[in-house]
Computed example of a mutant assay.
Amino acid sequence: MEIRVLDAAGLDATRDLRSQGFGALPDGQWAQIIRLAGHTLRGGRQFAGYEDGRPVATARIHDLPQWWHGRPVSMGGVGGVVVAPEARGRGVGRRLMTEVLERCTAFGHALSVLYPATTPLYRSLGWEHAGSLHRAGLPAEALREVRADASVGVRRAGPDDAAEVAEVIRRVHRDAGHCGPIDWGEKAWRIYLADRDVYHYLAEDGFLAYHWGEGNRSLEVELLVAASEATLRALWALVGTGSSIVPTVYANVAPHDPVFWLTRERTSEEVQRTRWMLRVLDAPAAVEARGFPPGVSAEAALEIDDPQLPANTGSWRLVVKDGTGRLERGDAAGRPAVRVGARGLAALYGGVPTSTLRATGLLEGDAPVLDAVFAAAPFALDHF
């Protein structure tokens, strides 16, 4: 199989392959994919594996900084991975993803994230489950009772507001110390804000995007972020005005999203989790860029084994202080090393407890301080 970097014509040639993998792609949906693919095409981030002159596998790598304790870490978001049905089961997917892993590293990303359709392939190359996208079903009537502060200015947003929208979202994630959300950037938001089927609202310190769902029988909140209680109430109250039309609002939320404490009545909620997987590509860069819990100071010895990315392999000294960290070559004097492979490192970075990792064989050794160092509840608010 020959793997090629795609241009616009090559991307168009993958439409049938993508339809086989993800379902029918009507002209309007395909046109939107083409519009959104501009930055990946220009950056040489769309790939396909060819056999006998036709594509049998394809994938793309987004440049999407990911927030970790309020600091952005360079991340390669892998999406659109599909292998033709007739090419499955003979190593085509592994060959493609090995190339994608190498390309992510060459682009200089410290991390990579993907949503798996199947887990074993990605685990074999060092990705591991680290966080989730949470989709909650909320009674629209409960949201109708949220009272908005009339002093909060909320207005419709369009493509010309892309820079402000991107900056407001960044500010919310940074100041809240979020772990897991991604940064689409101004160029992508300019495209998203032009979608007339999605309603966008902007406040000084918050943003809302929602649309009709299930044949107009529900509302779907794609994104709602706010830095203050007043703006949070204003945006959710706006969504709640749809309670006379629909019984349920579905929303992408954080695990401890403020909306769960905002409504007066809360007995139970329906929450669906879609898991995403993380891969540490450059261990020192990933630690240096990441934020850490304030007030935690620690040192630990790590022994990393990463056959796919041998630059990560070896003995390391982890030092964390004042919300920042560094990973240096060498042993931490007097401290027994904790041993992890690529999967264990990814899960540890994502805040999975060391007791869980030991129980599943992804970590060996005992260093309880690592639970405090990497403490996180990572979540996503977007698919890609």
Rank of each mutant, 00 (worst) to 15 (best):
E2R: 15
I3C: 10
D7Y: 15
G10Q: 14
D27A: 15
Q29P: 03
W30M: 08
L36H: 11
L36N: 15
G43F: 06
G44V: 11
A48Y: 09
T58E: 07
L64W: 12
M75I: 00
G76R: 08
G77I: 08
V82Q: 04
V83A: 10
E86K: 02
G89D: 13
M97F: 02
L101G: 01
C104Y: 07
C104G: 10
L111V: 10
Y115H: 08
P120V: 01
Y122M: 03
L125A: 06
W127L: 02
E128H: 10
A130K: 00
G131W: 00
L133S: 04
H134K: 01
A136F: 13
S151Y: 03
V152C: 14
R156H: 13
A157H: 09
P159V: 11
P159E: 11
P159G: 10
I169G: 11
G177A: 14
G185V: 15
E186V: 12
E186I: 09
Y192K: 06
R196C: 02
D205G: 13
S218L: 07
L219E: 04
L219P: 02
L224I: 12
A226I: 05
A226S: 15
A227M: 05
A227W: 01
S228I: 05
R233M: 10
R233T: 05
A234G: 04
L238D: 04
V239C: 07
P247G: 10
V249I: 15
P255R: 06
P255H: 09
Q272L: 09
T274A: 03
M277Y: 03
P294K: 10
G295P: 04
S297Y: 02
S297K: 10
L302N: 10
D306M: 07
T313E: 09
W316E: 04
G325L: 03
D331V: 00
R335S: 05
P336F: 00
A337Q: 03
V340N: 01
A347C: 09
L348T: 11
Y349D: 01
G350K: 00
G350A: 14
T360R: 13
L362I: 01
E364N: 06
A372W: 02
A372R: 13
F374I: 10
A375D: 15
A377D: 15
D382T: 07
